[in-house]
């Protein structure tokens, strides 16, 4: 069996991890395992590694649609396929078609509902004059995700979003920090 990274050396390091109920496997040669930090217990997650390797299928898919290169920084689909990293913030727009599916497999949702610049979220409740996302926007975003979750019959997700909306509607501005 050849190493999944360099595809040249014999793979001698084999890793298995269950991520979200799915078995992910990884076969590396010794040199690549060291290079990827697999020999270090403190900074190793198979999931991180999989971003560049096991998830290559999804990344390949993500890279195969949309524009071939980012107009801002010149980063190409091939670069993304190789590294699993993007070139600049605008790449998210340039490769948005393919990225959407990839983000769905990786994350809970595809709409950001957390902190936004200028909102001073979680600290003060004076959010009105700043240009960031207002609680109303966030509520709307959540509402949209909720409808979508119900549409695809993902009730577990729907219940979670419902709770989040409830938390947001609490008079203190939704700060649920303990």
């Amino acid at each position: 069996m050849l190493c999944m990274v360099c595809k040249q050396q014999e793979a001698t390091v084999h890793l298995t991890q269950v991520v979200e109920g799915k078995i992910k496997k990884l076969d590396l040669c010794e040199a690549c395992s060291k290079a990827k930090g697999v020999d270090d217990p403190t900074g190793f997650s198979l999931a991180d590694l999989l971003m560049g390797l096991g998830a290559s299928q999804e990344i390949a898919q993500a890279a195969s649609s949309g524009e071939s290169s980012c107009p801002t920084c010149g980063f190409t689909q091939a670069d993304f396929k190789k590294s699993g990293r993007l070139g600049c913030p605008d790449c998210y727009r340039a490769f948005s078609d393919g990225l959407e599916a990839l983000l769905k497999t990786m994350h809970k949702g595809h709409q950001h509902v957390g902190k936004a610049p200028g909102s001073l979220a979680g600290q003060t409740q004076t959010q009105s004059r700043t240009p960031g996302r207002s609680p109303e926007d966030r509520l709307q975003a959540l509402q949209r995700s909720l409808e979508e979750a119900i549409k695809v019959e993902n009730y577990e997700e729907a219940a979670r979003i419902r709770d989040e909306i409830k938390a947001l509607k609490v008079p203190n501005g939704g700060a649920v920090t303990a």
Binding site: G109, H110, A121, E164, A175
Partner: peptide, 8 residues
């Protein structure tokens, strides 16, 4: 996961 949930 970092997208689709609030920090808190």
């Amino acid at each position: 996961m970092t997208l689709g949930e609030t920090e808190t």
